[in-house]
Amino acid sequence: MSSTTRTMAAPRTRVVLAALLRKELRVELRSFEAVPAMSLFSVTTFVLFHFALQRNALSGDLASGVLWVTLLFAAMLGINRLFVADAEQGGFDGFLLSPADRSVLLYSKALTLLAYLLVLEVVAVPAFALLLLGSALWPALPGLLVVLALGDLGIVVIGTLVGALAVRTSVRDLLGPMISLPLLVPVLLCAARATSPVLGAVGAGALPLRWLVTLALYDLVFGLITFAVFDFLLED
């Protein structure tokens, strides 16, 4: 009884979240706008790096730098697309007309971007190992996965905020990267520093804890900021 009235008044967060995520999945499966482009872009960028650096195999600093810059730019494509359908086809209006809590939109978009990034990495990391990495991927993989997870988190919290900020401007494709890249420099810095010993030429080194902790703290702080200010972007 009480649960029915609650559902009538304000639908439960989990229900709304599930509905929004289903919508995101359906939109992506119908249009294939974000994920294939991001994956393809990353592979193309590796090829570009091969020719620009004139190297057949990379390791250490260079390998981690190339990997992270590529992931970051591929993520930019996803961030730019993240809210476009909602802004152009009335998704925002539909959501705001519903009695759902507004933070749920943030959760659903953050999870969507995270899913984009995970699919991207499923393609990009093996492609990187195949095309450019000098050492073997398997010994480096556990450490790399930890850094990727924390780096993704940072890209997700900043990307969701900036994507929402830029989408209803007249030059969204320019503003999105221009605002998010400086904000993502600390993420790139920590992630690249943490990855380079893992991809060392002589075999996977230990994971530098200091960079992981810094990265995790940065993710946390910007997660809180995004959570605090996101609602203000949805008020009309």
């Binding site: 905020l161 904000l183 910007f222 900021i225 605090a228 200010v229 972007l233």
Partner: peptide, 8 residues
């Protein structure tokens, strides 16, 4: 939006 930017 500018305020959201300025806070971040």
């Amino acid at each position: 939006y500018a305020s959201v930017f300025a806070i971040t």
